[in-house]
């Protein structure tokens, strides 16, 4: 039901297939059966109010969170949850790590490592995980830093950089893994308003390159502009899904209308 065709998406099999995923923290069920398909080259925006489960959903895709039940198909690797059931085939940890590296994640709080220079931050995972040589990793790190406009700051430590610069650095760090999918977890939420633009610009360029991306965001205008498909999550279930124009113009969901109207008065009628 979630395989709506989209502008950029191509290929028959999805790169990521989330099937009826549930996730509970203790008694609290945050995801109540979510299914998402992402095709190669597609940009998906996950929107919803805080507590709707959108970040948890994204973190499940990178396996930072383990779904309580459901199925994930990540780049041809199928994982059925719960992992320790009677007839389940538990995925081995090495495979899991290799998988994670191909689904690079960008966090709300950047999470650059403060004890390393920007360049070292970006070289770290390619050296330690992909076993690249230092020289190769450095060349690539410098290329990625140029891409996000931070080449001049490559020897700077993260805490000397602005939030926008740190986030662009974090994007470069993710890109250095040559991931097949980029996952963004509210990449601009921790930024001062005047720094949001530079980060969105980088993400927009990546979208134009045809990268597969899932973006959890509060930037509705940006989502409408960049995303091929918008998924609106509410209280752990998908409330609306489709082309941005369709979702943002939707009148079918009261909750969506409420959400759009209250937090983000972007719709013309709201003015």
């Amino acid at each position: 039901m979630s395989s709506a065709p989209s502008k950029r998406g191509s290929g028959v099999t999805p790169v990521i297939e989330v099937n009826d995923v549930h996730k509970s923290f203790g008694q609290d069920e945050v995801l109540k059966g979510v299914s998402i398909m992402a095709y190669r080259g597609e940009v998906i925006a996950l929107i919803g109010s805080s507590g709707s489960g959108k970040s948890t959903m994204l973190r499940c895709i990178n396996l930072l969170e383990t779904p309580t039940r459901g199925t994930l198909r990540l780049l041809d690797q199928e994982i059925v949850f719960p992992q320790h059931g009677a007839q389940r085939q538990p995925i081995d940890r090495k495979k899991l790590r290799r998988l994670r590296a191909r689904l690079a994640m960008v966090f709300q709080n950047f999470n650059l490592w403060p004890h390393m220079t920007l360049e070292a931050n970006i070289m770290e995972a390619p050296i330690q995980v992909l076993r690249k040589s230092r020289a190769e990793a450095r060349d690539e790190a410098q290329a990625w830093l140029s891409r996000v406009g931070l080449y001049a700051h490559r020897h700077a430590y993260p805490d000397t950089l602005s939030g926008g610069q740190q986030q662009r650095g974090a994007i470069a760090r993710a890109l250095a893994m040559s991931p097949e999918v980029l996952l963004f977890d509210e990449p601009t939420s921790a930024l001062d308003p005047e720094l949001v633009g530079e980060v969105l610009e980088v993400i927009r360029n990546l979208a134009d390159e045809g990268r597969t991306m899932i973006i959890v965001t509060h930037e509705m205008k940006f989502a409408a502009e960049v995303a091929d498909r918008v998924i609106f999550l509410n209280q752990g279930v998908i409330e609306a899904e489709g082309y941005p124009e369709a979702v943002f113009g939707a009148t079918t969901s009261d909750r969506l209308r409420q959400f759009m109207g209250s937090a983000y008065p972007l719709n013309g009628e709201q003015q």
Binding site: N62, R98, R100, A101, F107, Q128, R173, M177
Partner: peptide
Amino acid sequence: KGELEAARSLGMHPLTTLRRIWLPR
């Protein structure tokens, strides 16, 4: 925790994360 999560999300082995990120920090 986010710094360790970043390492984890890039596929780093837990021991590598300890040696390169957690312990030095």
